[in-house]
């Protein structure tokens, strides 16, 4: 399946902004983080198609995954 991965803020350092990735259907979001070398404890917001998700979420073809560190503002 083909996914679009979007990284933000400090997660872009030495990685990328946006990338298409080919992964097996049902791939776990937690395993995607490992593949990207992002520690779950540094993750603030995990979105799949704009919906808050967690490391147990299974991904499907066409999903857009957005990964943010812990951030705030206002």
């Amino acid at each position: 399946m083909l996914l679009e991965i979007r990284l933000f803020a400090t997660f872009r350092h030495r990685r990328f902004k946006t990338k298409q990735m080919e992964l097996p259907v049902g791939f776990l979001l937690g395993n995607l983080l490992k593949k990207l070398d992002i520690s779950i404890k540094n993750v603030g917001i995990l979105l799949v198609n704009g919906k808050h998700s967690d490391k147990e979420t299974r991904l499907i073809d066409g999903d857009v995954v957005a990964i943010f560190p812990v951030v705030g503002g206002g």
């Binding site: 979007r6 933000f8 803020a9 400090t10 603030g44 957005a66 943010f68 812990v70 951030v71 206002g74």
Partner: peptide, 25 residues
């Protein structure tokens, strides 16, 4: 210790929210 006050806000200011709020639609 808090990642927002120690890293997020000092590095990007409040503007770090642009992508967060947009990605959530």
């Amino acid at each position: 210790e808090n990642p927002v006050t120690s890293t997020g806000l000092p590095t990007y200011g409040t503007a770090v929210l642009v992508n967060v709020i947009n990605e959530t639609g």
